[in-house]
Design a protein around this nucleic acid. Structure first.
Lengths: 209, 209
DNA sequence: GGTTCATTCATACGTTCGTTTCAATCGAAC
DNA sequence: GTTCGATTGAAACGAACGTATGAATGAACC
């Protein structure tokens, strides 16, 4: 809480606004206003709006990726064949951990991730590094061993399902305050529900073709 | 294929572009150019860009909603207690049916739906009518009977999971041509995989608290 | 005290956006 | 043939956008 430097204040503001209004819905001026910085500061510190988004995305994704990787390492150190539940927990768990200060229990991070992933803007997709692919490939191999008989295509579909469930649940809550359905659910229970839901889904027998 | 009137040509073009580039990423000029219409035609026929989006969304969602409703009616006419599989199929199935001509097997419709649902723009959320809530409430009740012991909150979470899986799978494919993971999966198999995945997920025992 | 370098500031540029305006056009009714 | 309502056309408006520019600032170092 000392004197936060302009660069991280811009990152914080951009993370907040990108999560809430999307990339295209957030103007550079809105970011700098919220950050209490000058308009030109974005150009100076990041080069462009797209590079600012890449920096925000990296800062959010990297710890998640590291946690996923560490979780798999921990499992594989114990046994060469972790269970589906363990794999689901190690993979999906970090997606629920909003470790960043000021994040409302990870909800803001989730919103940001889905905003980035589902934004059709090209800039939103240029930040991905090889790390994300690597960790996903490792989990893919581990799941393949835990789920013999499942075709690679269906396995890939199911892993996409994990990302979908973990990423979108809070978003729809956030943007659909309809009282009839989809009322917001706070707290840690979401994480447990997701683990239950996804473990059962991943463990389903292969679709007979 | 006779002489398509300007209004529907604009609707078609807008549906295509909104699905591909999102609401904010699509300019009115791009829509009218693709439709071969004049820029002012949008204002004349729809009033504004936001109302054009609402019209597009209504045209896409309404048949899906009707199919979901008819499917539930058909099930309930046979038995008062349909199985989880039947409910999942009746609810999620229509989300995969791209009945509109020109749609690439429903993929474009899926993209449009998730684009609309995940767009943080306020305009993207103003089209919902009471019908969507009604059909969801009916399925909610049917699932509650099929899954006794599940708390209403967790049931709602799982229904959100259905929407997440059906909505997002093709989107991430669409926007992530990474060769490492998540390669596109075409055809009808996606629908079967989703039914398998979601039936198992919905049938999971309640999360012990 | 003067120089240097990184950073911040106010401001402007050029573009694109959604919307509006008003004249032109067309077919049908009289 | 004229009138009239509906539709289309070309053009323009004001606002907001991302970005670039060059001067001001301020602390660190000689």
């Amino acid at each position: 809480m000392a004197q936060p430097d302009t660069r991280t204040q811009i990152l914080d503001a951009a993370e907040h606004l990108f999560a809430e209004r999307g990339y295209r819905g957030t103007s550079v001026r809105a970011v700098t206003d919220l950050a209490g910085a000058n308009l030109a500061a974005v150009g100076y510190h990041f080069g462009s709006k797209a590079e600012l988004l890449a920096a925000v995305a990296r800062r959010v994704i990297e710890p998640i990726n590291a946690a996923q990787c560490a979780g798999l390492d921990r499992l594989l150190a114990r046994t060469p064949d972790p269970s589906v539940t363990e794999l689901v927990e190690a993979f999906a768990g970090p997606l629920f951990d909003g470790t960043r200060a000021g994040d409302e229990g990870g909800a803001r991070t989730s919103r940001l991730i889905v905003t980035i992933l589902s934004d059709p803007a090209e800039e939103a997709r240029s930040w991905t590094g090889p790390d994300e692919d690597t960790v996903r490939e490792r989990y893919l191999a581990a799941f393949a061993r835990a789920l013999p008989g499942l075709s690679p295509e269906e396995l890939r579909f199911r892993m996409r399902g994990i990302l979908a469930v973990t990423a979108i649940d809070r978003v729809e809550v956030y943007q659909q305050p309809s009282p009839a359905c989809l009322t917001p659910v706070a707290g840690e229970s979401t994480r447990h529900w997701a683990i239950t839901f996804l473990t059962a889904a991943m463990s389903a027998p292969p679709t007979r073709t």
